[in-house]
Design a binder for these strands. Structure first.
Lengths: 203, 203
DNA sequence: TCCGATCTGTAATCGTGACTACAGAAGTAC
DNA sequence: GTACTTCTGTAGTCACGATTACAGATCGGA
């Protein structure tokens, strides 16, 4: 099980996390290999041996980021009770996530990385966004099935508005919006969806 | 009045419009000088003589784009009647603008151009966004002064939500959302702001 | 017609950034 | 200890893209 040859002189997971920070802050294009080697304290050949080229490293970083984000979604949406409350909590949680001290501003998938002229990376980013949007649609459809939506409200249209708010909050965070402002937007956005008292509800 | 020396062999305004298209579609970084000279049909020295360097050209393009956008805002918001109706029309107009056939998708200031590593350009873009956001705030404050807002609704928070929708719609347009979807989002977003019957209103 | 001024096209220059050749170091297996 | 394998550090290579030098072209004015 022990690896043959000289062992790697750095922790791969730590390096990947460092690359995540760098790409998240500066995006794909303006994060140079020199930036990465300086930040991670390893020389270019080590980087290339461990992760492949810059694109492959970025894709791996994306997966890491996305997995964490999905885990957050799962935890937030798993709470029992009205779907509306879970989604409201999720939107508020995203507002807070986008304004977490110590983390880069906004969402890496939405705003930070825009590698124009890198079709493969752009496609992957779009795929991840699409996946989250689809997840939101599942939630609002479930809410509709549970009778939590007003009769004239399309679940897909509701999901689209919420998704639009997520994207917009990410950009506003990049532009310097503070936590209070984002939370306010999250709350106000949810007023689109009036709580529908279901037959049998208390209070 | 006639210029001295050999006259320019191309129309400066047409070239500027071509550069606008190119930057809008591809962003600053991945639009190369070669792209521009090919598209505009002029050689590099002519481009540099007419516009200065790439950054200066981009800034001039930005001004052109922004002036047109502000003109659109002015026209849409100048209609008499309830401010809410004007703002709803503006949001709907933006949804349509972001999905205009023949134009690049989304807003150039919001999404297309993200010249990471170009602080001056980033600052200018942020400045333009901030300016539009401030414009929205003026509108919602005016609406509040006119008694069009519910008592517990902060005009700045309302402006922030609308601005968030603008940013989000721009990104969704880039991701392929069609006109119907964006219009639906614009309408649903405005349900945040319930029309308040003012004393003396008819119907 | 001749001159100075300005534009145009070709073909460089020049810097930057991704990527790698190579020599040495540091492990395991025998 | 020796052979084999894999990592590390230095110092490149190589391509690409912004920018410009230079020679020729085209204009108004004398």
């Amino acid at each position: 099980m022990a690896a043959l040859g000289r062992p790697r002189g750095f922790d791969r997971a730590v390096a990947l996390d460092g690359a995540l920070q760098a790409f998240w802050e500066q995006g794909f294009e303006s994060t140079s290999i020199a930036d990465l080697t300086r930040r991670l304290g390893i020389a270019p050949p080590s980087l290339y041996a461990a992760f492949g080229d810059k694109r492959a490293l970025f894709l791996e970083v994306l997966d890491l980021y996305y997995d964490r984000f999905v885990q957050f979604l799962d935890e937030t949406l798993a709470v029992p009770g009205a779907r509306r409350d879970a989604i409201a909590a999720m939107l508020l949680g995203i507002a807070r996530f986008y304004s977490t001290p110590g983390l880069p501003r906004g969402c890496m998938v939405n705003t930070a990385a825009a590698p124009t002229g890198e079709p493969i990376l752009l496609a992957r980013l779009a795929e991840l966004r699409s996946s989250v949007q689809e997840r939101l649609r599942r939630e609002t459809r479930a809410a509709a099935d549970a009778g939590e939506l007003p009769r004239d409200m399309e679940p897909d249209a509701l999901a689209a508005v919420i998704w639009t708010a997520v994207l917009g909050m990410s950009m506003r965070s990049r532009d310097g919006a503070d936590r209070d402002e984002l939370e306010s937007t999250a709350r106000l956005t949810m007023t689109i969806w009036p709580p529908v008292r279901r037959s049998g509800d208390q209070s």
